[in-house]
Simulated scan of single mutants.
Amino acid sequence: MASLSAVRVAARSQPAEKALIVFHGLGDSGHGWSFLADYLQRDPSFRSTRFIFPNAPTIPISCYSNMQATGWFDIPDMGFSQEMKADVEGTLRSVGTVQAFVQEQIDKGIRPENIMVGGFSQGAALALAASALLPFKIGGFFCLSGFCQIQSRLMQLKNNNNLETPMFHGHGDEDPIVWFSRGQEAYEFFTREVGLRNYEFHVYKGMEHSSSPKELQELVQFIKNCLHLNN
Rank of each mutant, 00 (worst) to 15 (best):
M67F: 12
A11H: 05
Q103Y: 01
R197D: 05
R153K: 14
P213H: 10
A6P: 15
M167P: 01
T91W: 00
S145R: 06
E83Y: 06
N162G: 10
Q82N: 15
R111A: 13
Q221S: 11
A2E: 14
C226Y: 04
S5D: 11
V22W: 13
G71L: 14
E164K: 12
F80W: 08
A56Q: 12
V203K: 06
L154F: 08
A16N: 04
N225C: 12
K137C: 09
P166G: 08
S45C: 14
Q217M: 13
L134Y: 01
R111F: 03
G140P: 00
E17T: 01
F46M: 07
C148D: 12
Q217I: 02
S3I: 07
R182D: 10
A56S: 13
H31L: 09
R111K: 15
Q184V: 15
D38G: 14
K137F: 03
G140I: 01
R192M: 10
R47K: 13
L144K: 07
V117P: 15
E83R: 10
G172V: 03
S131W: 00
P135W: 00
L227R: 13
I106A: 02
Y64M: 10
V203M: 09
I106Y: 00
V88A: 13
Q151I: 04
G170Q: 06
S65E: 06
F222V: 05
D175F: 07
M84Y: 03
G118I: 05
I106K: 02
H171T: 11
L163Q: 03
I106T: 07
M67N: 09
F147T: 02
S121H: 03
V88H: 12
K137W: 03
D38R: 02
A2C: 06
V9R: 15
